[in-house]
């Protein structure tokens, strides 16, 4: 099992709350290879943070098994803590210490010798673009700089694995891109294993593999490309002249008299429509909608992205759950 940088098998976490037991993570199994970037993606409340914390040993697990670099999350907690970097979801560095003091504190705590510190800290600060802000209090940094400081601090002991919990939450797009650029450099130059939790689909595309988490379990676990292939049909994009009406019609395709409409998603003023065969359906669709007085602007076929795949997979999951319930009701009757 130690061939994996991060491993979880049937990992389960149950919280006791006043309302009863809540299963935040259920039977989660994942294996991350050394040097891989793994994305734990899913909507808010899916259990990404809880899963990360249990794997790190910050929370006790309720069932299953998990390890980092072959060290058990519960038993070898301190072996893990010496070898792993972590960025918590909220900014969790002492805000009343300066950038430099923060770096030095975490270096000291991680047992980095003063000589190594002298070399490593300026390097990391330069790498993170914080070289000019060494005297600034951490609490006074911008959101993006805070995340970069957290990254620099988590790397000060040269860990082999880093776990990043939504590292770009509340960060502007430019800083987000910069942050991922830094991660890419670490991956390429140091062979760092990265586990990243994120709700952003564009970030999921940057991972070698992703686990799509909903309600505490994976509904998909593969490379981004393979996950996109799991989506049924092909994707059309267009802007209708009357979006609400079109949406209502497409959600009830029998009224429209067009077959082969699989799913419709809104995308701003545009609509994304999954159909079985674009060559056949586009003329039918255009005709049927123009009979209703609706024109379609900029109609074209596009490649599904993680975002569409994500929404589609979650919907399918929900439908199956509802169907499952219905079946069980029939079964008992």
């Amino acid at each position: 099992m130690s061939e994996y940088a991060i491993a979880a098998d049937g990992l389960t976490k149950v919280f006791k709350t006043r309302g009863g037991l809540v299963t935040a993570v259920s039977e989660l199994t994942l294996h991350v290879q050394p040097g891989e970037t793994f994305g734990l993606i899913g909507p808010d409340g899916a259990g990404k943070t809880t899963a990360t914390r249990v794997i790190l040993g910050l929370l006790r697990r309720s069932g299953g098994h998990s390890s980092i670099l072959g060290y058990d999350s519960m038993r070898d907690t301190y072996a893990i803590r010496e070898r792993v970097g972590y960025i918590a979801q909220q900014f969790a560095l002492p805000a009343d210490l300066t950038v430099m003091e923060n770096m030095q504190f975490f270096a000291h705590v991680q047992g980095v010798s003063p000589r190594q510190q002298k070399q490593r800290i300026p390097d990391l600060l330069a790498f993170a673009g914080l070289g000019e802000f060494t005297e600034r209090l951490a609490g006074r940094l911008s959101g993006g700089m805070k995340k970069k400081l957290a990254l620099a601090c988590s790397l000060v002991h040269e860990p082999q694995v880093v776990l990043l919990d939504e590292p770009t939450l509340g960060v502007d797009p430019v800083s987000r891109r910069e942050f991922w650029h830094l991660l890419g450099k670490l991956r390429a130059e140091k062979g760092l294993t990265i586990l990243v939790c994120t709700p952003y689909m564009d970030e999921a595309e940057r991972c070698n593999r992703v686990g799509l988490m909903v309600n505490g379990r994976f509904i998909a676990y593969d490379t981004p490309k393979a996950i996109k292939r799991q989506v049924n049909g092909r994707l059309l994009e267009f802007t209708p002249s009357d979006t609400p009406n079109t949406l209502a019609l497409l959600q009830n395709p029998s009224r429209l008299g067009v077959d082969g409409i699989l799913e419709v998603q809104t995308y701003g003023a545009m609509l994304h429509l999954f159909v079985d065969d674009p060559a056949l359906r586009v003329p039918q669709l255009t005709a049927a909608l123009s009979a209703q007085g609706i024109t379609l602007d900029g109609l074209r076929e596009i490649e599904p992205r993680m975002e569409e795949a994500f929404i589609s997979l979650i919907r399918r999951q929900e439908e199956e759950r509802v169907d499952g319930k219905r079946l069980s009701v029939v079964g008992t009757a």
Binding site: L56, L58, Y78, R81, E82, V84, Y86, A88, Q90, F91, A92, L93, P94, A95, F106, V109, Q110, G111, A150
Partner: peptide
Amino acid sequence: EVGTIEQLLVTPIR
């Protein structure tokens, strides 16, 4: 309360 305990706990500090 400010959450810094989380970042401290993931270091080797006992």
